[in-house]
Design a protein around this nucleic acid. Structure first.
Lengths: 219, 219
DNA sequence: TAGATTGTTAATCGATTAACAATC
DNA sequence: TAGATTGTTAATCGATTAACAATC
């Protein structure tokens, strides 16, 4: 009985975390859990968990709690991890190569089906079962295959241009690892940017702040 | 004239982005900007920019706007990027290696001063000017040098244990790239987790959602 | 049935936006 | 001075928490 209102991004961003914790519980053989127990585990309020889940439907059972396996599966469907969307990765430098090997694309809803770079030294190399193709071949590849999302690991200066080219090829979703905030006009476009340096700077502030408050607490 | 109230994390998380945009403006030779112009550029409201900045002080000038160079420098100080905090990175696998080469630690407030791994095949290798040391040497290293933050690129299963060991060595800040949500009790502890898979799953939902709404709009 | 825990409505809290007086 | 734009207070909006009736 999935509901059909708008769901805030705050809620959406918590869903993968629920999915992750439920996966861990499942592995540990836990079959049922109450919102209260899950809240304690995840450092949230029980209220928030129930509110969040009820954006999508009533997956619990009064007096009992939630079936871990069932809820896990429901969230999988909510996120759409079962659709086998197809991803390509552009820019097989240090970072790109690391993601190919390290990120569990399949478990996160995407099949990685192509690697591209414009560096001749990399073209033809095989990484994790995929052969690096010439970046000039992207549009031909997109014409021949369905491509749902592009992972951008190119230099920041090339980010916008690369994204524009991909939009023209019909690719509307981006996982952006460049420093640059790409702009995409397409109505169906979605961009998920991971600004690593921004996170590191925020950490820097927090370290300062923690020290400030602990030293002022001393007095 | 820095203010001294509590600043919400929502504001903190936007500061690095301001810093980044101001840096770009600086490079382009722009010397002054109004909150209205900056808002258009960053896709925010002018009001929010003024509110955010005024958490830390009045950096603008009525009738004129903000001096780009001055504001850039102020934010640098606010974030504490000038303190030369020291970082070590644990786990020199694909991801760890990529970050060593790719992330601008220095520009983000930290000097990377040590690399550690427990894999004998990696120990002794030189990466970007640093020699990989045996993970067993971490506590000795921390005793001999100041270490402010640890970058965790170890397998998820080892995350908590590694963090515990580091806490015992006096390291209280973590940039966590494992799947696992580490728990740290220390009052001064700060953790910045980058759950790559979570972001990818959120993107998966958004792709689904964008398609749902554009197909329903067709009708 | 009694106890537990959900789903949901209402209350609170915080963050964003709007408005405007201060001032460069 | 007049025009522009800030800093800041007030209004709005959204998200989180609390409460409780429904129900397993």
């Amino acid at each position: 009985m999935p509901k059909n209102q708008y769901v805030s991004t705050a809620v959406i961003r918590r869903m993968p975390r629920y999915y992750r914790f439920l996966g861990e519980l499942l592995e540990r053989g836990v079959t049922r859990i109450s919102s209260k127990e899950l809240a304690a585990l995840m450092n949230l309020t029980a209220s928030q968990i129930r509110q969040d889940l009820n954006c999508f439907g009533g997956f619990g059972q009064q007096g009992f709690g939630y079936h871990v396996a069932l809820l896990h599966e429901e969230i999988r469907k909510i996120l759409g991890l079962d659709q086998g969307f197809r991803a390509i990765l552009i820019g097989v430098g240090n970072l790109g190569r690391a993601f190919v090997n390290h990120v569990d694309f399949t478990g996160s809803g995407f099949d990685l089906v192509g690697l591209f770079d414009k560096n001749p030294a990399l073209i033809g190399k095989k990484i994790s079962g995929l052969t690096v193709q010439d970046a000039d071949e992207i549009s031909a590849f997109c014409a021949a295959h369905t491509v749902d999302v592009a992972v951008l690991c190119v230099p920041s200066e090339a980010a916008q241009q690369t994204a524009n080219g991909l939009i023209d090829c019909g690719v509307t979703a981006f996982w952006n690892f460049t420093q640059y905030d790409i702009k995409v006009e397409h109505p169906e476009a979605v961009v998920e940017s991971v600004h690593l340096a921004d996170g590191l700077m925020a950490l820097c502030y927090q370290v300062n702040d923690a020290r400030r408050s602990s030293s002022s607490a001393e007095k």
